[in-house]
Simulated scan of single mutants.
Amino acid sequence: MIVAGDDAHTRLVYRSPEVTAFFPLEPATRGHTLVVPNRHVADLTDLTAREAQDVGEAVLRSARAIRSALSPDGLNVIQSTGEAATQTVPHVHFHLVPRWTGDRMTLSWPAGAAEDDQAQNQTLAAIQSVLFSEAGAVAPEDRRQHLSFIQAVITRMSQASSSSKSWLLPIVTLTYGYAITKKSLLVALLGCLAILVFGVLDANYLKQERAFRKLYDDVAAGRPIPAFSLNPTLASPAGTRQNYWPDRRDLRSWAIAPFYGPLILAGLGVVGWLLSRRYS
């Protein structure tokens, strides 16, 4: 047996306690190599996590050796599971097939998509549902820890919003008071500018807080979000462009418009009063 090392005719590439790599009896191209787990496993999905890691590392190591030694134009990594997928040997194996332009290998894909857009979305949802439910079943504590990380970011965004308001109030009081007492139009305009800057900054905090709340809801609901990811764009539909500027609904929020709106109106009132005195 090849894995046991009992076949003297085998062109063995290397063997470890977990994995064996060797040339098949009839290589498709020069350097064609098979990588197999030493334990008998008929189906790819029956590999343990450790075996999958060992096989993956062996495939990568062998591929690098082939590329370095033979300098092929390309390399196919082929794994077939099931009769419909052309599996003929009931043992998991990976083909590493070096490729050269014009070689005798023939691989082709059918033209066109197998499903329309709606069917693809349903297929995607089905696969993601199983994928995430399996991950969640293995380590439910990971999801709770993930949620605590997201909640910490939400809390930090909320605190940053409160701090921006606290910093702005003395700035507005100082600039508006100075502008009125000293009849300084420039200081009044600086006060208005400070309100605009802090308002946009605060609205962005709100935008980020909402994005992380959406991420929190998706993780809590068991949607397919990578473990411990703190990227809120993963909770957005595919293809959505990331916009770092506050949206209209952020600016019109009760936490933004009712606070910054009166302050900017007061500043414009001061500016108008100073202009009227200047040209009166």
Rank of each mutant, 00 (worst) to 15 (best):
A4G: 14
A4D: 13
D7P: 00
H9A: 15
V13A: 10
P17E: 05
E18V: 03
E18D: 13
L25Q: 12
E26L: 11
E26D: 14
A28L: 15
T29E: 03
G31P: 06
G31D: 07
H32Q: 04
L34A: 02
L34Q: 03
V36T: 13
P37N: 05
P37T: 03
V41Q: 03
A42C: 08
L44Y: 14
T45G: 03
D46N: 11
T48G: 11
R50N: 06
A52R: 09
V55K: 06
E57Y: 01
V59T: 08
A63L: 01
S68D: 15
A69R: 14
S71L: 12
L75D: 07
I78D: 08
I78S: 04
Q79F: 03
E83Y: 01
T88P: 00
V89L: 12
H91K: 04
H91M: 04
H93G: 01
H93A: 00
T101I: 13
G102P: 08
S108P: 00
P110V: 02
P110N: 03
A111S: 11
A113N: 07
D116F: 02
Q118G: 06
N121E: 14
N121C: 04
T123W: 04
A125K: 12
A125V: 00
A125M: 03
A126T: 09
A126E: 10
I127Y: 12
V130C: 00
F132Y: 04
S133Q: 15
E134L: 13
E134S: 13
A135M: 12
P140F: 06
E141Q: 14
R143T: 14
R143W: 06
L147Q: 13
L147T: 04
F149N: 09
Q151M: 10
S158C: 01
A160W: 01
W167F: 09
L168W: 06
P170A: 10
I171Y: 01
T173Q: 15
T173R: 14
T173N: 14
T175L: 09
T175M: 08
T175V: 03
Y176R: 09
I180E: 13
T181N: 14
K182N: 13
K182A: 15
S184M: 06
L185Q: 12
L185R: 14
L190H: 07
G191Y: 08
G191K: 11
G191P: 09
C192H: 02
C192L: 09
A194T: 04
L196Q: 11
V197R: 11
V197Q: 11
F198G: 02
L201S: 10
A203F: 10
A203L: 09
N204C: 04
N204G: 12
Y205T: 02
Q208D: 03
E209V: 00
R210S: 02
R210T: 03
A211T: 00
R213D: 02
K214H: 09
L215G: 07
D217T: 12
V219K: 05
A220C: 00
A221P: 06
F228Y: 15
F228N: 12
S229V: 01
N231S: 06
L234V: 11
L234C: 05
N243W: 03
Y244S: 10
P246W: 10
R248H: 08
R252Q: 14
A255N: 09
I256A: 05
I256R: 05
P258W: 07
L268T: 07
L268N: 01
V270T: 14
V271H: 06
L275I: 13
L275Y: 07
S276V: 09
S276N: 13
R277D: 08
R278P: 02
R278T: 10
